[in-house]
Simulated scan of single mutants.
Amino acid sequence: MKQASKEAKMPTYVCSLSEGFVNDSQKAAIAEAVTRIHSEETGAPSYFVQVVIEEKKSADRFLGGSRAAGQIWIRGDIRAGRTQAQRNAMMLRIMKEVARITNAKEEEIWVYLCNLEPTDMLEYGHVLPQPGEEADWFNRLPKPLQDYLAQLGTTKDTFTL
């Protein structure tokens, strides 16, 4: 079996910030925090979560037509079906964690969540499940893929929703 790609995962959170604003350990801390928050709030396994840190030159960022520096913008493409309470909790927790990690002001961190239908996403060679159906989806995967996902820290025994 061809090894599953580590590149295309849902949800995908893209964190755009000024070049050099954070160091490598802060980038890792942001990725860990976003992954943890998404998994805790939705029950989805962490192997679904991808975090991309994009550094931009300050000249690339404008607010109201003026150059802006220090703004952190996080866009999360997530599966539709999450409640408003879940989405609000994720956005607020992500904002607070990123502010703590980067020492940025909370009002300088903008979080947008964009809902995509699960049937519009394919990962690991399979169309994604509806929220809450992850365990059944996992159980239907080929054994080599289950083993690969287990290497990422999730197994049938440790799978929780």
Rank of each mutant, 00 (worst) to 15 (best):
T35E: 08
R140D: 15
L152D: 09
L113G: 08
A8Q: 11
R87F: 01
A150D: 09
L113W: 07
S25N: 12
E19S: 02
H126R: 08
G64M: 07
V98D: 06
A8C: 09
A33C: 06
K6Y: 10
F48W: 14
T42G: 12
E7Y: 09
S39D: 03
T102V: 06
T42A: 03
K9M: 13
T12C: 14
A99Q: 10
E40G: 00
V22E: 05
K2I: 10
A33D: 12
L149P: 02
T102L: 04
G20Q: 05
K27V: 07
I30Y: 04
E19Q: 08
H38L: 13
G65T: 07
E108S: 13
W110A: 12
E106V: 08
G20C: 06
T42W: 05
K9R: 15
A8S: 14
E106A: 13
G65F: 07
G153C: 09
V34W: 10
F48E: 00
A28I: 03
E133I: 00
C15S: 11
E134Y: 04
G43C: 08
R36M: 02
I37F: 04
Q84H: 10
F48R: 00
G125D: 06
E55N: 07
K6N: 13
L161R: 13
D136M: 08
A89E: 09
I101K: 05
I37W: 03
E106K: 07
A28D: 15
A29H: 02
L122S: 14
